[in-house]
Simulated scan of single mutants.
Amino acid sequence: MAFGAGPVREASADRLPLLRQLSIRDNASLFASHPPIGLRRRMLAERPWRDPLVVLTEARAERIDAELAREYERFRRTVEWSG
């Protein structure tokens, strides 16, 4: 059995349009802080593609990980101690 987003997306591909349409009708509210998922998905699908303005390079990712290493270790110890 495969795990991850890809297989789940493939298995539900035929149902997604219906679920999005239902979300537009069922989740619309004057009191909601965001539009229903179906409307958000429609808006994103209709926008033209634009290249990202910021790209995370491998070198930058390594620098970020190095900067956060102490916090990662502190969190690991906290989780280990509380478990």
Score class of each variant (00 low, 15 high):
57 T>Q: 05
46 E>D: 14
35 P>C: 07
74 R>Q: 15
53 L>T: 08
64 I>M: 15
27 N>F: 15
42 R>N: 06
49 W>D: 12
71 E>W: 15
11 A>Y: 13
56 L>S: 08
15 R>H: 14
43 M>I: 04
59 A>G: 04
58 E>K: 13
32 A>E: 09
26 D>I: 00
15 R>W: 05
2 A>Y: 15
75 F>H: 15
54 V>S: 02
32 A>V: 05
21 Q>C: 06
45 A>I: 01
28 A>R: 10
29 S>Y: 11
37 I>N: 08
81 W>Y: 05
19 L>V: 05
8 V>M: 15
10 E>I: 05
63 R>P: 03
72 Y>P: 00
56 L>R: 12
2 A>C: 07
19 L>G: 01
56 L>Y: 13
57 T>G: 13
31 F>Y: 06
41 R>I: 09
23 S>D: 14
82 S>A: 13
12 S>A: 04
26 D>Y: 04
11 A>M: 09
25 R>G: 02
47 R>L: 13
63 R>T: 10
31 F>M: 04
25 R>H: 02
22 L>G: 05
77 R>G: 03
17 P>M: 03
4 G>L: 09
48 P>F: 01
44 L>T: 01
66 A>H: 15
10 E>M: 11
54 V>R: 13
49 W>P: 01
55 V>R: 14
58 E>L: 05
4 G>K: 09
33 S>L: 10
1 M>G: 11
56 L>E: 09
21 Q>E: 15
48 P>E: 11
4 G>Y: 06
8 V>E: 05
33 S>M: 08
